[in-house]
Simulated scan of single mutants.
Amino acid sequence: MNTLFITGVTGFLGGAVLEKILNSDQAVNLLLLVRASNPQEGLERVKANMRKFHVHEDILARLNADDILIGDLANAHDFLSDPRLDQVTHVLNCAAVASFGNNPLIWKVNVEGTLALATRMEQVEGLQRFLHVGTAMSCTPEQDSLVAESAEFRENAEHLVEYTYSKSTIEQLMRQQCPRLPLLIARPSIVVGHTRHGCTPSSSIFWVFSMGLMLQKFMCSMEDKVDVVPVDYCADALLMLLNSSAGQGEVVHISAGEENSVRFADIDMAMAEALEKAPVGDKYAQVSYETLVKMRRELKHIFGPCNERLMLKAMRLYGAFATLNVRFSNDKLLSMGMPKPPRFTDYIARCVQTTQGLTIPEQMAVDFK
C-alpha cells in the first residue's frame, strides 16, 4: 500500500485497524477522515481513541495533522474535493452509524454519504482497492442456518433494524452505480471485545450477554449458538483483505464460522468462571418477549437506575438476533491464509474484567447513540 484512506478511525473497528498499523512496521501513508473543526482537533480525537487501545505515546507522536482529512460522511461533498484523495491507492471504509436505535443519520451516512464517497473514489486512477465494511446480518439470514458468503439478498426480506437495511442497500447501490470501483466487501459477524484490551475500546454488545445472565432468562435457548469475533481479529482480516487478490465485488465473511461459534451455555460457564461464581445453568429460562415486558417494574432492581423503555427495546432487538442461531461461513477468509479466530469464550474473562464497575445501562449507551 502507498496511501491508505481510512474512515471511522475514531470508532471501534477503524480504531482497531489503526492500532495494528501504528504498532507494525508497515510503510504506509495515512489519510484519516475525522469529524472535527480543524486538523489539530481531529488529530487529538484520533489519539484519544488510540489511547483506549493502549497505543504508546511515542507511537502516537508519529501521527500529525497532515494525516487528517476533516469531514463527515453525513455531509460528504464538503470534503470530496480534497486533492489528497487523488493520491489514494487503498480505501478502508469503516465509518457507519452502527446504532440499533432510530438515529436519523443512519441512512444519510451509511447509504447517501458512502455512495458519494464510492462515486468519488471510482474516479481515482491509481485506486487499487475499495474495501467496504458491511455486516453479516445485512443478508437477513434464515434461522438455524450456516450462511454462505454471497452477494445475493433474499427478496422482500424484513430487516430487524434500520442499520442492517442500510448496509444491505449500500452494497447493492455501489455495485449498480460504481461498476469500475475496485470494490471488496467484508462482512463481519458480531464483533465483541478485544482479546487483550477486553471492552476498554468499546463495550458494544458485550452487555447483552451480561444482561441475559443477570435476568436468568432471555429469548434464546442455552443451546443456541452465536457467531462472535474479537475486534483485533477483525482488524487483522481487514488488513489482509486490503492486499488480497480477491475479485471485484466479492463478499468475504469475517466470522467465527461453524467451528468456533459458541453456545450460550458455554458463555454462561466462561463468564461465571471469570466472575468466580456459579453459572446460571438450570436456573435459566427461555421466555418470550411478552414475559420480559411483564418484568418491566423489576428491571431497576436488577440493573439499577435505567430507562425501562430502552431496556425493553434492547431486549426485543437483541433477543430477535439471538434466537436466529446462525453461523456465518468463513471458508474464504481461511482459504486466503487467515488463521482461525479465537472463540468468544477464550477471551471473555478479559471482557468481564474491563467492564467491572459499569452498569448495564452504561455499557449499552454506545449501541443506542
Rank of each mutant, 00 (worst) to 15 (best):
F303E: 01
H197P: 00
H301K: 09
S245E: 13
M211Y: 12
C351I: 06
G14N: 08
A27Y: 00
E223R: 12
L358N: 08
N156Q: 15
R316F: 08
S210W: 00
S288M: 01
L239D: 10
A349G: 10
I170C: 07
A320Y: 14
K369P: 06
E44G: 07
Q177E: 15
Q143E: 13
L32M: 12
S37P: 06
V111Y: 09
R51W: 00
N325K: 09
T355S: 15
V191G: 12
L31G: 05
G193M: 08
T164N: 15
V280H: 09
D367G: 04
T7R: 00
V147K: 12
P188Y: 03
A74W: 13
A235F: 15
D144G: 05
Y165S: 15
L33V: 03
R120Q: 07
F303I: 05
F344P: 11
D25C: 01
F153N: 11
L317R: 04
D282S: 04
E112G: 00
V208T: 13
V91L: 04
I190T: 15
W107P: 06
S261N: 09
V109H: 07
T200S: 08
M315H: 04
P83D: 13
M137G: 04
V161F: 06
I21P: 05
I68C: 07
E155D: 14
I6S: 02
V17S: 01
G281M: 08
M338A: 08
G113W: 01
F264C: 02
N93S: 14
L146Q: 10
F368R: 03
E122W: 04
E158A: 14
P182W: 03
R196A: 14
C220D: 05
I59V: 15
H197G: 10
R316Y: 09
L60A: 02
G101D: 11
L105P: 11
M295R: 11
I21L: 07
L131E: 09
A151C: 02
M271K: 10
L33S: 03
I267V: 12
